[in-house]
Simulated assay, not measured.
Amino acid sequence: MTLPRNATRFGALQIAICVLAAATAVCHIYLGVVTHVMVATQPEATAAAGGAAALGFFAALFYLDALGYIVLTVALYLPALARFRRLIRWALIALTAATIIAYFALIQGHYDAIGIGNKIVEVALIVLLVVEGRRERLHA
């Protein structure tokens, strides 16, 4: 039995992509929660960080980023969306690259282990998505 041309073989590469995307989504959810907790429990730190409105905006961005990773990763492997796989993969690469750029633009030199670790995960995700895309084109 052969698989249809647009079927995705779900192997180690696809599992690694899903794990990396889930890891960065969980990291962004964590950051959103931490930001909300800071607003609720640390008024001095909140004021120093730009106020509740600014931090609320950043918390929302963290949640939306996490949602983007989840939705695009699920969409990437849904059989019903197989014909859009290349476009979805590029959207996931673009989201990941934008997240990396935003981190360095917004962090303003205040690097931390969570941020740098997550950027390493995101770079690895981009690399694996590019590898997957090239393999898919070679076997098409």
Rank of each mutant, 00 (worst) to 15 (best):
A59F: 05
I29W: 15
L72E: 08
Y77Q: 01
P43Q: 02
I126Y: 04
I107G: 11
Y63S: 09
A113K: 03
G117D: 03
R134Q: 05
G68F: 00
G133C: 09
A48I: 10
G51D: 03
F62Y: 13
L76M: 09
A60M: 05
A53W: 14
A47K: 07
F10A: 00
V123W: 13
A54I: 06
Y63R: 09
E122W: 12
V37C: 06
P43H: 07
G109Y: 14
L95T: 04
H110A: 14
A98H: 05
I93P: 00
Y111G: 05
I17C: 00
L31G: 09
P4S: 13
L55C: 02
L129S: 04
L138Y: 05
G117M: 05
A82G: 06
D65I: 10
F58G: 10
G68V: 00
Y111C: 09
F84I: 04
A97M: 15
G11L: 11
C18K: 03
Y69N: 10
Q108V: 15
L31M: 13
R83S: 09
L61T: 11
Y111K: 12
L128N: 03
A98E: 08
L92H: 02
N118L: 08
A102T: 12
A22R: 02
T96M: 01
I17R: 02
G56C: 03
F104G: 06
F10G: 04
A54V: 06
E132Y: 15
C27G: 10
I116P: 13
A54T: 11
A60P: 03
Q14H: 09
I120A: 15
A45Q: 07
L138G: 11
H110C: 04
T24I: 09
L125G: 06
I100M: 09
L20C: 03
I100P: 04
K119T: 14
R89N: 13
V74L: 09
F62Q: 08
G56N: 12
T24P: 03
L78I: 09
R134H: 01
A7Q: 15
A94V: 03
A60Y: 01
Y77M: 00
Y69E: 10
A60R: 08
T73Y: 00
Y103H: 06
E122F: 05
A60F: 05
A7G: 08
